[in-house]
């Protein structure tokens, strides 16, 4: 492992984050606060407890997950798309650094940022509802794993996208709907049986369910399944990234 190179890219990316601190940290915090005001306070007051958890508290894991996914995807995709777009990527591609190291640095930086934002969101949530985390270590593991997995997805997206529209459309048209339909704001068991089955094809269900389990011990699918699925997604995205580098897809003519 070429640590100097990895550190250089990682710190460069973290520095970029610091430069855009306002939009990268405050924007998600404000968005999440709005969700709490609308869903938690206004609507939540009329919704009964779900499996013994107040609605306001019930949506916390889903909201954090929503932020994690969108942040990871947008950070990581932008992180690699921009140098590709501005052509400064020539330097990284000509450096004595392996594909794996490139991925580790970019994805590592994006995931770090997501974890930070996720924790801040969690703290913000604590201002609105009493927080309770039953399995803190599992909670952190899910936080970390989701950030890495979807930063990797963002990285792949950033290499694939050849214009800004694609870069923005995918999170908007894929990630956000999947998250909303993935049980962030409701329990899957509230759906009619047919839709319960359909929902199982939505990867986000496994993430939200596992994450919620680490908070309240309640889950839509078994925790083991959640973890296995998360690793499965990680493996899929890693395989795509590896293929992209191997073939030089949209990176090397």
């Amino acid at each position: 492992m070429n640590l100097n190179s990895v550190r250089a890219i990682y710190l460069f990316e973290m520095h970029r984050t610091r430069r855009t601190l306002l939009q990268s940290i405050f924007a998600p915090v404000i968005t999440t606060s709005l969700y709490f005001v609308v869903f938690g306070a206004a609507i939540g007051a009329r919704i009964p407890e779900i499996e013994g958890v107040s609605y306001g508290a019930f949506i916390v894991p889903g909201l954090v997950m929503l932020t994690l996914l969108t942040q990871s995807v947008s950070n990581a995709s932008f992180g690699i798309f921009f140098p590709k777009f501005s052509r400064t990527i020539y330097e990284v591609l000509s450096a004595p650094i392996s594909h794996f190291e490139i991925v580790v640095s970019y994805v590592g930086a994006a995931a770090t940022k997501s974890v930070i934002v996720g924790l801040i969101i969690l703290a913000t949530a604590g201002l609105f509802v009493p927080l309770h985390v039953e399995h803190p270590l599992w909670m952190l593991l899910f936080l970390l794993l989701t950030s890495i997995t979807f930063s990797l997805f963002g990285f792949v997206l950033g290499i694939w996208a050849d214009n800004f529209e694609k870069l923005q459309l995918v999170p908007l048209l894929v990630i956000t709907p999947l998250t909303f339909l993935g049980g962030s704001f409701y329990s899957i068991s509230m759906l009619p049986p047919f839709w319960q089955t359909v929902t199982l094809f939505n990867p986000v269900v496994y993430l939200v369910s596992g994450f919620r389990w680490s908070f309240y011990g309640i889950a839509d699918v078994h925790i083991g399944v959640s973890i296995a699925m998360t690793f499965f997604f990680l493996a899929v995205f890693a395989a795509i990234a590896a293929w992209m580098f191997k073939t030089g897809y949209r990176l090397k003519p």
Binding site: N2, N4, S5, R7, A8, I9, L11, F12, E91, V92, A95, P96, I97
Partner: peptide, 9 residues
């Protein structure tokens, strides 16, 4: 950054 990227301390 370039120096680090090329593996130099």
């Amino acid at each position: 950054f370039s120096r680090g990227l090329f593996g130099k301390s």
